[in-house]
């Protein structure tokens, strides 16, 4: 019997480009799982997160880092966080389930998003061309997370460090999203 094993593809085929001191690249190999808090179960989930990852559930709009950086929890909406962790398998939910048990409702989002990392001196100026959020460090410090809209596409923005941003947009419009970010970088560099 022939090998029918399905080959995975990333949304942006491993895109990576440097513009002077600014770097734009696809991030792949991540597990992303949404964790919803059962009604009345926030304490249980909080406890499970604390003991599994050694960090707190983040409030909406911010993130926490657990297990010495192995996992990041992002507060996307009331009662829902996204867990982001390095993972190459097909069953990211199982990983979370193993850690948190039945203290949350889990949905795999690993294949739902195209992820881009933008970093470097022009990052903020470039994002200012498409992102309505105030990304000034005084308002949007390291670890802040937000969902917003850029060029008609929903985007999740996570700040990592002084001039690094993880950007996540719907997988189906990955090419358009890359085009939008790339154009912004070109327009300011």
């Amino acid at each position: 019997m022939p090998d029918m094993t399905l080959k995975p593809k990333t949304p942006l085929n491993g895109y990576s480009e440097t513009f002077g001191a600014t770097v734009l690249e696809e991030i792949a190999g991540m597990g992303l799982v949404s964790i919803a808090t059962p009604r009345g179960g926030v304490d249980a989930l909080q406890g499970a997160v604390q003991s599994a990852y050694g960090c707190a559930l983040p409030p909406t709009g911010s993130s926490t880092i657990g297990n010495d950086g192995a996992i990041r929890l992002m507060g996307l909406q009331p009662g829902q966080v996204f867990a982001l962790f390095a993972y190459d398998g097909d069953t990211a939910v199982t990983e979370i389930e193993k850690a948190l048990g039945d203290n949350g409702y889990y949905t795999d989002q690993s294949d739902s998003w195209a992820m881009l990392h933008l970093s470097g001196s022009a990052a903020i100026d470039a994002l200012a061309r498409i992102c309505p959020l105030d990304l000034d460090a005084s308002v949007f410090p390291d670890g802040t997370v937000a969902r917003t809209v850029m060029e008609h596409m929903g985007v999740i923005v996570l700040r990592e460090g002084t001039d690094g941003f993880l950007l996540m947009a719907a997988r189906s419009s990955a090419a358009n999203f890359l085009h939008a970010v790339e154009q912004s970088v070109r327009n300011v560099t």
Partner: peptide
């Protein structure tokens, strides 16, 4: 508001 129900889009996932 008192129901325990949670929604998330999975359109892009599959």
């Amino acid at each position: 508001p008192d129901l325990d129900v949670h929604l998330i889009s999975a359109t892009e996932q599959f």
